[in-house]
Amino acid sequence: MSSILFKNVYINDNAMIVGPYEKAGKLNFNNALTDFYDNEKTFEDAEIKMQSTVLDKLLYNHNLRPDDIDVIVGGDLMNQITATSYNLKDYNIPFLGIYSACASFAESVIVTANLLDTRFFKKGVVITSSHNLTSEKQFRFPVEYGALKPKRSTFTATGAVAALLTNQESNIKVESATIGKVIDYGIKDTFNMGAVMAPAAARTILDHLKDLKRDINYYDLILTGDLGEVGTNILTDFLYQNNKIKLKNHLDAGMQIYTEDQETFAGASGPVALPLVLFNKILNQKKYKKILVVATGSLHSPVMCNQKHTIPAIAHAISLEVK
């Protein structure tokens, strides 16, 4: 059993900021950086600043002080989850740092929802961020090198998202969650993250449906995180060939952010891609009542990839009910 039902956990609000590429993309964002530095000296500082901007905004919107928050859970893509840890040194909030790459948002919600369901904690915040150039630097080539990329590669989204979770009823209920398993289907290609993560997404979706005895059509929408175009096609094919499940009501967050002519290849990736699409598009549309959010993360390390190991992946799912 890898699933859990929550009694009363709600997402009350969110705050987000994005980078210049996302602003120029398909969705409308109010708050965006004009360049990758945002008046800071380094890209790393710019990512930390994005996190503090969204956290400040969330606290300000609800007239809260940092002391009012019982726990904050979050992570990012940098080594030692630097952006999150360094941002929170200026706040006085109990912090749990997590890492599951691009699945970090869902993992944060699962951890926070469990703590809130105990009723000992009243208010929790989940936070995550990614920055295209800090992750290029960390996982790939120097920023100015502009290494050529194949069509199957994804583009790390720049942005930060914070969300407030409490026991107070709101329109968005966190109904249940499924904790993912680490899945490795033998892919070594670091450009093909969609292929790495698709089996993990399939595993978590199947586990979720089995644990809670639900059919795939129970959900109005299955929103996967950052599989991109290649990964989405693989997931659809995989579920059909392996389990005879037809994936119909499905959207992938990675494919919702950029336009065709932005040269972002198979789509957006990064831990912020999924919450950006969830909060900015899906929940605003008020079209879907039952949503299964499946955040996928590739757990690769450049060291292990250089040593010719295959790439493991994980996916965590949260089920949201919208009023």
Binding site: N192, P199, V230, N233, D237, F238, Q241
Partner: peptide, 11 residues
């Protein structure tokens, strides 16, 4: 078998 699926969908 998975490799085949990946190959089919990779541009």
């Amino acid at each position: 078998q998975y490799e085949k699926i990946v190959k089919k969908h990779t541009p």
